[in-house]
Every structure is written in C-alpha cells, then in structure tokens.
C-alpha cells in the first residue's frame, strides 16, 4: 500500500514544485541544470522506496508513477481547462519586432534569451527581424521571422 502512497505523494509534490519554479527552469538545460536534475532525483529516490529495496517495491513504484502519468494525460485530453492549468499555454513575448516587456518580466525571460534563440534558430542579428517570439509550453522560445 505505501508504495502507491509514496509514489503519489512524490508525484504531486514534484508537480507543484516544478509548477512554482516555472517552465524556464528545465526547459533550456545547461550542464548545471542537468546536474541539479540528477541531485533532485537522488533526493527523491529514498523517499520513493523507503527502506524496502525489493524488486517488487521498485516495480510497484514505477507502475504507480506510470498509472498517474497516463491517467493525467487522459484526463487532460478530456478537459482543455485542466490541460492548460497543468501544462500552461504559449505566450507571445515579441510582437512585430518589439519586446513585450511586462510579459517577459512575468515569465522571467530576458532579451538575451530571445536573441539567443533567434540566432540559433534563424541566424537573426536584431529583434526587428523577428515577427513573433513565443515562449512555448516546454520553456523553449520559438521564433517566427518577419
């Protein structure tokens, strides 16, 4: 029984925590972010398994996590609103070559982040060359040329 409870509690806690830290947190994974992600995994591991290191327990925990994940994706397909609440929606942060600064501030995106994405994706030098920059649900910035 406690394998299911542990997995459920951890799933919920991680979902809320990552919601708080925002989509920029792990969207653009630097090597340090990667290390941080692994450390989070290490910290979670003990709580997930408790002091039961049996194969059965490990499988039960994995199965529970998968059931929750699949279940949630099914519910999200049914309810658009819940999907938006959990995954968020895309946000436009550059419009017709102009930064939308309030939105950028709220979403914790900087000019440099957008210009970097513009260089990598399109080879642009200036913000005027961008028609739209969109902060996507997964934290990546997509660029639509003018």
């Amino acid at each position: 029984m406690d394998a299911v409870l542990r997995a459920g509690a951890i799933y919920l806690a991680l979902m809320v925590l990552f919601k708080i830290s925002g989509r920029r947190s792990l969207g653009e994974l630097t090597s340090f972010d990667f290390v941080l992600l692994m450390v989070i995994g290490e910290a979670t591991q003990q709580a997930l398994l408790g002091d039961d290191f049996s194969v059965t327990n490990a499988i039960l925990v994995i199965v529970t996590l998968m059931v929750i994940d699949i279940g949630l994706s099914l519910v999200k397909r049914r309810s658009k609103r819940l999907a938006k609440l959990i995954d968020g929606g895309p946000t436009i942060i550059v419009e017709n070559g102009a930064f939308l600064r309030h939105r950028m501030h709220e979403a914790r995106v900087q000019e440099d982040d957008i210009l970097e994405a513009a260089r990598i994706e399109q080879g642009f030098e200036r913000v005027e060359q961008i028609k739209y920059a969109i902060l996507e649900r997964n934290g990546k910035i997509s660029i639509i040329p003018a």
């Binding site: 708080i20 609440l85 939308l100």
Partner: peptide, 28 residues
C-alpha cells in the same frame, strides 16, 4: 494592451497565465 489575449499566431489565455505567474510568485 500588452496583456490582451492574442489569437495569432497562437491562441493565448493570459488571464490563466497571469494566475499561473501569480501562483509562482506566491510559491517562491
């Protein structure tokens, strides 16, 4: 004006997005 929902190129729901941002602020 900036916080108005756009429909092109993506349909936005900024009312909800602002709630999410507020939730994040409180969360920190």
């Amino acid at each position: 004006q900036e916080m108005q929902d756009r429909v092109h190129p993506v349909a936005e729901d900024l009312t909800l997005q602002r709630k999410v941002w507020r939730f994040q602020r409180v969360g920190w």
